[in-house]
């Protein structure tokens, strides 16, 4: 038997150190500081530890909790629209792009992807202009096909604003699921598709029986990316509807609520402690979603080697 000599392999922590330092400085530390801050409040000009009092206010105080649940509900709806529209549409577009019969694929691919690299300010502003009842082109376009009666100021109506905003966001980001699925579809070997062809599986059954099962892992990844992206969303709503999530808070989501709470808006004063509390809650909502996905869904999706 050879004696076991335990040597500490110093090079491992040493090499990890730079990454750990940078990651801690810009991720871990602010996160912990925010967490920590949510347990404090100001009393008589001094910062004091208040335990979970901030959380009790957030969920117990009607003024706060009503806003919070409203934003959470809107956010869930926002996410749902993305899951129901953006991702299925992305898959369909990718399937069409990967079809060998389609020409100009490079053009379509780029055209569909471009909005994703545009600034949300531009996207928000452009759509505000398009949909504006006064000088937008949407009413005119509808007029041209005789459907002017269908036009409504979608962004201004409480009943439609959130759906409209969600669809604008879908328009902007659809290129991302499309690209991911497109890459996954391209990675399916040609011979597997040809074997299916020999088995009489072509057209739509080729998609449902062979391709879709093989791209499920990518669809899982897209879902979780959408979830995280949507629950962190802020910019598009801020650019289009303002920080109040108008009209009447119908487009208020967690991001805009957090912005107002933290930094204040108009008459509302910024509150560091309430903001931290809300940020912490958001963090745990997203964490719960991601963990649920990782442990519940990811395990069941197989990655296939070809």
């Amino acid at each position: 038997m050879t004696p076991k000599i335990k040597t500490i392999r110093w090079h491992i922590p040493l090499l990890l150190l730079p990454a750990v330092i940078i990651y801690s400085a810009i991720m871990i530390f602010p996160l912990l500081a925010t967490l920590n801050l949510s347990f404090f409040n100001v009393e008589e000009g001094k910062q004091v530890f208040v335990g979970i009092a901030n959380y009790i206010v957030l969920f117990g105080n009607e003024i706060y909790s009503e806003k919070f649940w409203n934003a959470l509900g809107n956010n869930a709806y926002f996410f749902m629209i993305h899951m129901l529209v953006q991702n299925p549409l992305g898959i369909i577009l990718a399937a069409m792009l990967s079809s060998k019969k389609l020409r100009f694929t490079a053009f379509y691919r780029t055209a569909i992807f471009i909005p994703a690299i545009l600034s949300f300010v531009i996207v928000g502003f452009v759509w505000k202009l398009i949909l504006s009842p006064l000088w937008g082109i949407a009413p005119d376009l509808l007029d041209m096909i005789g459907l002017k009666s269908l036009f409504l100021p979608w962004l201004g109506k409480e009943a439609y604003a959130l759906t409209t905003i969600s669809l604008i966001s879908v328009w902007q980001y659809i290129g991302i699921p499309m690209m991911l699925i497109y890459a996954a579809l391209l990675s399916i070997p040609e011979e597997v598709v040809e074997a299916a062809e020999c088995d009489g599986i072509t057209g739509s059954s080729l998609f449902w029986k062979i391709k879709l099962p093989l791209i499920l892992p990518s669809i899982g990844i897209i879902s979780i990316l959408t979830f995280v992206g949507n629950f962190n969303a802020f910019d598009l709503i801020y650019a289009t509807q303002g920080a109040l999530g108008g009209p009447g808070f119908t487009t208020d989501i967690l991001g805009t609520l957090l912005y107002r709470t933290f930094f204040g808006f108009q008459l509302q004063l910024g509150d560091l402690y309430a903001g931290s509390t809300l940020a912490t809650v958001m963090f745990f909502i997203i964490l719960a979603g991601v963990c649920g996905y990782l442990f519940g869904v990811q395990n069941r999706l197989r990655r296939y080697q070809f």
Partner: peptide
């Protein structure tokens, strides 16, 4: 029916 060099089985 065809047998391919890379087997081309349906992995799922």
């Amino acid at each position: 029916s065809m047998v391919f060099q890379s087997y081309a089985l349906y992995p799922h």
